[in-house]
Amino acid sequence: MKKSLLVSLFSMALICMFAAPSVFAMEAPADMLIQAPEGAKAKKKPVNFSHVKHAEFKCQECHHTWDGTSPIKKCTDAGCHDIVAAKGKEKKNIKYFETAYHQTCYKGCHKTLKKAGKKTGPTACGQCHPK
C-alpha cells in the first residue's frame, strides 16, 4: 500500500512538473504587421512580425511597461510611444515610432544575440522591410 501511494505521488509530481506549465502558459498572439501609426509617414514597407517565433521570451522583454495582468498595449497605444505624447516634429516624424522598435528588436535583441554568436532574427534593414 505504501509503495503504490509513493509511486502515485511521484507520478503526480512528474505530471505537475511537466504538464502544468503548458496548461497555464500564455498562448502567443497571431502574427501581425507592424506599420506606421496613422499620421506618420513611413519611408519603408511594414514589417511582418511573428509572435510564435518569439514565444520563448518573456512578454515584458518587449512590452516593457506591461504589469503582467492588464491587456498588453501596442507600442503606438496611449501610454507608450503614442502620437498623443509626441511633440512638434515628432508628431509627423516616423523616427519617433521607428526608434521604439529598432531599439527593442534590432539593437536590443537581434544585434546583441548576433554579437554573442547566438541564433537570432534579422539584422539588416531588407531582412525585415520587404522591397
Rank of each mutant, 00 (worst) to 15 (best):
K95G: 00
Q35P: 11
H63W: 06
V52F: 15
D82Y: 01
H64Y: 09
D82Q: 11
Q60W: 13
D82E: 10
E90C: 05
A100Y: 00
C62N: 04
A85H: 12
E38A: 13
F97G: 07
K89P: 05
N93A: 02
N48W: 15
K74H: 08
A78L: 10
E38W: 08
T99W: 01
T104A: 08
M32H: 00
E38H: 05
K95Q: 00
Q35K: 11
E61N: 14
K107N: 03
G39L: 02
A30H: 01
H63E: 04
H81K: 14
K95W: 12
C62L: 02
A40T: 11
K95T: 04
E98V: 06
Y106D: 10
A78W: 15
S50Y: 10
G79V: 08
E56Y: 08
Q103R: 11
K45G: 07
G88I: 00
A55R: 15
Y96S: 06
K41C: 12
H102Y: 12
G88E: 13
A28Y: 06
T69R: 01
K73H: 14
E38Y: 02
K43R: 00
A85T: 11
I34G: 03
P37N: 13
S50H: 06
W66C: 02
H102L: 09
A30W: 05
Q60C: 12
I94E: 10
Q60V: 13
E27R: 08
L33R: 09
K107L: 13
C62A: 03
D82A: 10
H81W: 06
H102S: 07
A78Y: 15
T76N: 14
A100K: 06
P46C: 01
T76V: 07
Y96N: 03
K87P: 14
K58F: 03
Q103V: 02
D31E: 10
K107S: 04
S50L: 01
H54T: 01
E38F: 09
P71V: 09
